[in-house]
Design a protein around this nucleic acid. Sequence first.
DNA 1: TATGAATGAGAGTTCATTCAT
DNA 2: AATGAATGAACTCTCATTCAT
Lengths: 210, 210, 210, 210
Amino acid sequence: MVRIKTEVREQVMGQTRQALLNAAAEEFSSQGYDQANINAISIKAGFAKGTVYNYFPSKQALLKALIDSIAQEHLEYLRSAILSEDDPALRLERFFQDGFEYVARHTQRARVMFNTVNSSNQAQKGYCFRAYQPMFQLVAGQILLPGMQQGLFRLTEPEQTAILIMTIYLGTASQVDEQGRPWLNPENVADFVLHALRTVKETRSLGERR
Amino acid sequence: MVRIKTEVREQVMGQTRQALLNAAAEEFSSQGYDQANINAISIKAGFAKGTVYNYFPSKQALLKALIDSIAQEHLEYLRSAILSEDDPALRLERFFQDGFEYVARHTQRARVMFNTVNSSNQAQKGYCFRAYQPMFQLVAGQILLPGMQQGLFRLTEPEQTAILIMTIYLGTASQVDEQGRPWLNPENVADFVLHALRTVKETRSLGERR
Amino acid sequence: MVRIKTEVREQVMGQTRQALLNAAAEEFSSQGYDQANINAISIKAGFAKGTVYNYFPSKQALLKALIDSIAQEHLEYLRSAILSEDDPALRLERFFQDGFEYVARHTQRARVMFNTVNSSNQAQKGYCFRAYQPMFQLVAGQILLPGMQQGLFRLTEPEQTAILIMTIYLGTASQVDEQGRPWLNPENVADFVLHALRTVKETRSLGERR
Amino acid sequence: MVRIKTEVREQVMGQTRQALLNAAAEEFSSQGYDQANINAISIKAGFAKGTVYNYFPSKQALLKALIDSIAQEHLEYLRSAILSEDDPALRLERFFQDGFEYVARHTQRARVMFNTVNSSNQAQKGYCFRAYQPMFQLVAGQILLPGMQQGLFRLTEPEQTAILIMTIYLGTASQVDEQGRPWLNPENVADFVLHALRTVKETRSLGERR
DNA sequence: TATGAATGAGAGTTCATTCAT
DNA sequence: AATGAATGAACTCTCATTCAT
């Protein structure tokens, strides 16, 4: 009995929490953190103002929880996409392809992330970067390193190049027009990056082999 | 007499206006637009709160005026740097080299620009983009087009590629550590972009084959 | 059966009620009424927030019940102490001696009472005074009146003097330093009051001995 | 010109500040600190809510400023009253007489002081005690010490006795009925304290003379 | 009987903006 | 032109109280 009750309650609480996080994503993405209104979030979630504070101790904490949630989802989305390919070049294409797709499918959450990563609030920016650390490692460890080891990519500092690629991803994926359509398409971006990474030798040899 | 007086007045007003813009750059860069405090700006400039409103009708207008000022200075800085070279590849290197240098020398103003370009406030973001339009054209018209015409760069959509390069510039130049030092250095970034743009033929050192 | 069940229930309810009153004493004494937190009280008592409202209809009512409990205990404590002596002077000494002792032993409850008696909330203050009415009567009827009748004390308005003595008791007993130790000791206070009350005759009797 | 302007402004600011302090005294005295409403204070003073914060950084700071103001006025009132007499006994009478008078004339301010001295907020209580330190010294140094030196008062610890007398003053002067009239009158209280302090010899000698 | 999620009035505080001097 | 006192909307956060389970 008690067990069931507890389970039901936890499920309800989970739903409420999720509803609040979704509403927060909507508000933060459209208004930015400073202009976001806690009252508006609670209303969007279908609850009263005070309910937000039953789940998150402060506006800050709400943002952090949201960032955690986004980073985890975003990472999982890209990890499975990348690891579905074996070839590093294809993995890179997948990274941009599915990366843009993630942004298109989770526009609000992605915008929150972009805003936070570029925030002038150093604490927030730092928190977001830390949450995204695994993705940097994913790019460096699962795309660049194998690519270099297989002679497909030029030899560069994997960490530095990972930062560069992440910067390009975050930069290009976040620039959208008024209707929310990205200015650049993922194929072009991936192509650009592939050209930048490929080894001259490999390119040439491919041609010469034939 | 009246003429002279007027000139003196205009000069004084110009100084005051500039002092306010500088103070605004300091405040906006460290606090972000929303957290920036008009009173703090006036104090930093050595004036009283009300004086700000003698020069700018609102906080918004102050930001826009500052963005205009920054964009103009930034553009002039890069235009003269680029045009000092003839070779498109060298111009691209200059673009990143002097672009990073501008950020290093005018950290606060650059930060204001980065913050505004990435703002979640669409009006501000749009205004900033419009102010930077000439720089997109500079990259497309003075670097990419000549490069392609001379066969140095692969054939791509100049506008799209200019957006990409600007994105990379804005992204890489704005990422700095706690001490304000950029995570990436301009040489590496320029190198990366050059690799992405060069024609395979040229890279392969056509000469070597023979 | 029903009878027994009812008894058990009443006992359990009595324990819960007492636990809540104790927790309330702890919270009210340290935070004051306005700053006291119902949730904190329930947690200190080992129950949930809602339980408080199963026993007391409101925060106000909880305070009043606590004041009643304290006043009753406090009165009983002092009544038995006083009545254990026959001599009015000794009773007065006992009053301060055991009064201070009560405060030392029931610090939290005593503090609640002091706070409430001195509250700026007239309703609370009045309620507390009414609850303490019997103690005023105890002082007037069991100490001052007998003392005057026996010629030990000067003739004064017993009610007025009782107020004065109660004021001195409440004032001196409530002033404690950071460690909770009273600034004044009961002997000195009792001595002071005895000097104030004694008849000149009695004093003079020293001289008559000669 | 500038001088005059500045003087006028300072005078106006002083008036505003005083109006706010008076309104604060009204509100704090009737509602207590926690229940006092900053908005109500500003309205009572004839200003908008925000104006309070142009003069006092917080509600706490407003209370402290008020306490300082009260303590200074109260001390000055009693110091001049006491020092107008030479005889320690008359000074003591004056102390209670004029002390009660001060309370009657500045009811609100006095109530704020009583509330704060008895506050359950230790920081506030401590601040108030510190502000009243000079009055303890006044009683000890200008009444008790001379009285003992002249053989009028029994030999006791002046500091301890000063605390006792201050406690009696604060306790008796603060107890008023619904109409604001004190329960005790200053003559009786002074008489009580004088009886407690007087030397036996003096008392006896009066009787023996006859 | 006990629970604790939900509520929403309320309060302190901030600050862009106005305007009389 | 410069000032800064005054304004009041807006916002975050608190918490006593309710009530379905």
